[in-house]
Design a protein around this nucleic acid. Structure first.
Lengths: 339, 339
DNA sequence: ATGAAAGCGCTAACAG
DNA sequence: CTGTTAGCGCTTTCAT
């Protein structure tokens, strides 16, 4: 860790030039088998490890990628981390964590890191481009950037995502099929892509079933436990209470269920609740949450694989991947009361 | 992102040498104000960003640190990530994610990355040293490594942790104070530091209260929901059922509560349950879980700060920090039934 | 199949 | 205050 043997040392020890060492160590075919063995031995006994800074400078690449999320504390990302990390590792890349906390300035820092050569590519899960990058990235292909989970409307960056609208539709349809007619929705933060799509799915399902959506049933939250609770309380202070709730994520669903319990309602006997994401503990929760499950680890893996393809100059790589979701029907939904 | 202005370009444009540019850009005091301005302008108009690979090579440091955990998918780490990331960012460092999946070989890879110069330091939350590093790191101070959460017995590496034993003692004491006498424990994987300490706390509290711990009450799990469920089921198949459970982490506690519900027991009326960690959702769970809360974000922050001190050659830095925990008494614990 | 030499882009003596 | 110069450790022409 301190004295680091360098390529020169090996060269001397093996009685060859540094060039040959470099070639031998990278399995170049133009090194005699005998020499190669000698060099390997020398490297082993000197416990040689190539200096990555030097290699990076010379090769003009860093072998790291940036994984940028809105909020590292969101448990939703865990499996995605895993998928990304696994795919990256398999290809010899390291993963740098980026956390924007929804701050565009912080997002810009990560784009700058890309320019600095700090990372070779980036997986973006923030749904936004910093102002000054919008034009730069807007129309161009082959930027080493993959967007995951979200979609950035102003760009045609390669992306991997799910059909939020269809999945939400399906979730609401499930409630409708159970006989529910008064179904309320609490969405994510509102001018955002993911929240909008999920809400669209809700509205479409309601419309297709000929069910009304009073303004009071169409609420805007922010994916937090807190708004799940508060908006649920608000919802149940009206005369025309809903019999079912569709929340744009599980965390809000947990908040809502908590609040309902506090208000004296039973889930699902009095009120059915559907979430979205199927995060850790959604199944262990009481009652086990009916929710939309998405292949998070695969989203991570695919995103990283697309990025690797981009970095490898593979143009044949698909520029947009849509992964399937699955409605997990569990115990938080049931038939409409009084039927 | 493609054409990258270099220091030479600025030098030419500002009519100075590259050395002066370098100095000006790093706010060296020995540059005339006028020159500095000229250089700054040039850098701005050329949209210059220093190449980190070159800088790293020259400076022999990478400005990144490695954060190595047992399992990225564990929600427990989330706030720690945040603390580490924030402290690192504040100091201009990036954080590389390392995931060992409890595999010593993978752990070794990360140690190698340190030698490679891939990272300048490392925060280790795996509780183990790869075989071949044990001697190397064993006795030495001032290695750029900080151990968090765990303690590595064979070394005196700087560390930040909590008093697992005392916290567990306190949790079990809480149950005893409620009148419970038949208290069982499900520990984490067993020859491990953290699990052992928590179990010791349990055993000590029981011993101090003169309560017996039949072998059947002293179970070994693995921190997973699944073992929480299974061992709980096993526990309640005995004649002498416990009236309270102390689980070594929240996840197992959730599993146990689930199982109890399935077996027809009510928490806390029939059985009280205490967890450990106070992870995301422990409060939103039903019933809200009584558990030991540890300052996770601070653990991350402190660990990073210690690492920065080490990297800065600050010998005055404390080599061991113990952070306080807090027993959160919530609704999963209550008086012993029939009292 | 191997070696000599150039150079990736930057910083830091050293010399003025 | 500023310029010249010498590398950091590696890979890769270009010769041989």
């Amino acid at each position: 860790m301190t004295d680091r043997a360098k390529i020169k040392d090996i060269a001397r020890r093996a009685g060859v030039s540094t060039a040959t060492v470099s070639r031998a160590l990278s399995d170049s075919s133009l090194v005699a088998e005998a020499t190669r063995e000698r060099i390997r031995d020398a490297a082993r006994t000197l416990d040689y490890r190539p200096n990555v800074a030097a290699r990076n400078l010379r090769m003009q690449r860093s072998m790291s990628v940036l994984l940028v999320v809105r909020d590292v504390c969101n448990p939703f990302y865990l499996d995605i981390f895993k998928g990304v990390e696994a795919a990256a590792r398999a290809a010899g890349y390291s993963v740098l964590m980026g956390n924007t906390e929804n701050d565009p300035d912080r997002a810009r820092e990560y784009f700058d890191m890309l320019r600095d050569g700090h990372a070779d590519g980036m997986i973006l899960m923030t749904g936004m481009l910093p102002q000054d990058y919008e034009q730069i990235l807007g129309g161009s292909k082959a930027r080493p950037i993959v967007v995951a989970l979200e979609l950035i409307e102003s760009s045609d960056l390669p992306n991997v995502h799910i059909d939020n609208r269809a999945a939400a539709y399906r979730a609401v349809k499930h409630l409708i099929d159970l006989g529910h007619q008064r179904i309320a929705h609490i969405s994510g933060p509102m001018p955002e892509f993911m929240s909008s799509r999920r809400r669209e799915g809700y509205l479409a399902a309601m419309a297709d079933a000929g069910l009304p959506v009073p303004a009071a049933y169409d609420l805007t939250g922010d994916y937090s436990l807190r708004t799940g609770r508060e908006l649920c309380r608000q919802l149940f202070s009206y005369r025309d209470r809903p019999t079912a709730l569709f929340l744009a994520n599980d965390e809000m669903a947990f908040g809502a269920i908590n609040e309902l319990r506090q208000l004296g309602f039973t889930v699902p006997d009095d009120v059915s609740v559907v979430g979205f994401d199927d995060i850790f503990l959604s199944e262990a929760f009481y009652p086990p949450l009916t929710t939309v499950s998405q292949p998070r680890e695969e989203i991570g893996r695919r995103a990283m694989e697309m990025l690797l393809a981009l970095l490898g100059g593979n143009d044949a790589a698909p520029s947009s991947v849509e992964l399937p979701t699955c409605l997990k029907v569990r115990a938080s939904t049931g038939p409409v009361p009084g039927r």
